[in-house]
Simulated assay, not measured.
Amino acid sequence: MTTTPSIRSAFAPTGKLRAAINLGNPILACQGEDGGARGVSVDLAGEFARLLGAELELVVVDAAGKSVDAVASEQADIGFFAIDPLRGANIAFSAAYVLIEGCYLVKQDSPLKANEEVDAEPNRVVVGKGSAYDLHLSRTLAHARILRAPTSPTVVDTFMELGAEVAAGVKQQLEADARRFGGLRLLDGHFMVIQQAMGTPKRRGAEAATFLARFVEHMKASGFVAAALARHRIDGASVAPAAA
């Protein structure tokens, strides 16, 4: 891929590439032993900065909604999010680079056995505020009540504190929390598959959006995304297929 002055200017108007990194999704990023952010999204941001010939600046947040806000308000130049129509109002998305399962977690003695049983009164479903699960379930649940935890990593803690019936989130995070608390189980299967993409403010223009989309396709086709998932020992996610 070849960059141009206009592309570099579009993505790094401050002289640096500012990448919003959400630590609330452990499949994409987490805090390393040195205190810095590490993960698939950090690797992609670094490779994109290298391609542009720009210094990378990480804008680290703890929730998906904060990452969306940072890019939509142009406090960051790129970000990593689940594709959602609501977010698409101000952000131009690439096609997905990874697919992530969204699952339900319940107490061991819960009568709930299947995903289809969750949307019923008086079930209360805890989700991370502003997360892809929050956006999706707010549109699709007709009878169950949604309760919002401050961030995705605090969903199960909030679920336990409130004595709610269901927790919803990233399969890997829920599995880790189930081991941490004990007496919990995941329902079989998933209620959604998240298409995780890169995005940039729509105000950066069509040329920038097209360039970012091409970059993502190149990273998938070259094996970079698959290698990053393996390097960070990520389960529960797969490389998204090539865009049509």
Rank of each mutant, 00 (worst) to 15 (best):
T4D: 14
R214G: 07
A213Y: 02
V193P: 06
T158I: 05
I21N: 08
L147S: 07
K202I: 09
I146K: 09
F93A: 08
V170H: 03
F11P: 02
E117P: 05
G223P: 03
A29R: 02
P13N: 12
Q196P: 00
L105V: 09
D62F: 01
V68P: 02
R148P: 02
R8V: 10
T200C: 15
N90I: 01
A95F: 10
P201Q: 06
R179W: 11
A167V: 07
P85W: 09
A114F: 14
L105Y: 03
V126A: 08
L135G: 02
F11E: 08
E47C: 01
G223K: 04
V126F: 13
R180M: 13
H218T: 10
A167W: 15
E101V: 02
Q75F: 13
S131G: 03
E33T: 10
A29I: 00
V68S: 04
V59S: 08
A144C: 01
P111A: 11
A45P: 09
E55N: 03
P26Q: 09
T140K: 13
G32L: 04
G163F: 07
T14C: 05
A221Q: 14
D69M: 12
Q196K: 01
I78R: 02
T154H: 07
G53V: 03
L28Y: 10
V61D: 03
V118G: 02
G182C: 09
N22A: 02
V239C: 08
G79Y: 00
Q195D: 13
L186M: 09
D134A: 14
F159I: 08
V170D: 15
E117I: 01
R8P: 00
K66H: 10
R231V: 00
I146Y: 04
T140R: 12
A20K: 05
R148E: 05
A197D: 01
N123L: 00
V155Q: 08
T210G: 10
T151Y: 04
H232M: 03
I100P: 01
G24M: 07
T4K: 11
G35V: 10
N25A: 11
E207W: 06
A168C: 05
L184H: 05
A226M: 09
D177F: 07
F159M: 00
A149I: 04
M1P: 08
Q75K: 15
P26M: 06
T140S: 14
L86T: 11
G236T: 01
E116V: 15
P153L: 06
V98G: 06
S138R: 15
M1Y: 12
E116C: 10
P201E: 05
G35K: 04
R38Q: 05
G39N: 04
R180H: 14
T210F: 03
T2V: 14
F159K: 09
G102D: 10
L135M: 13
D77H: 14
D188V: 12
K202E: 12
E117V: 02
S6Q: 11
L212G: 11
G223R: 05
I78M: 05
L212V: 09
L212R: 13
D77N: 15
H143P: 00
S73H: 11
F211M: 13
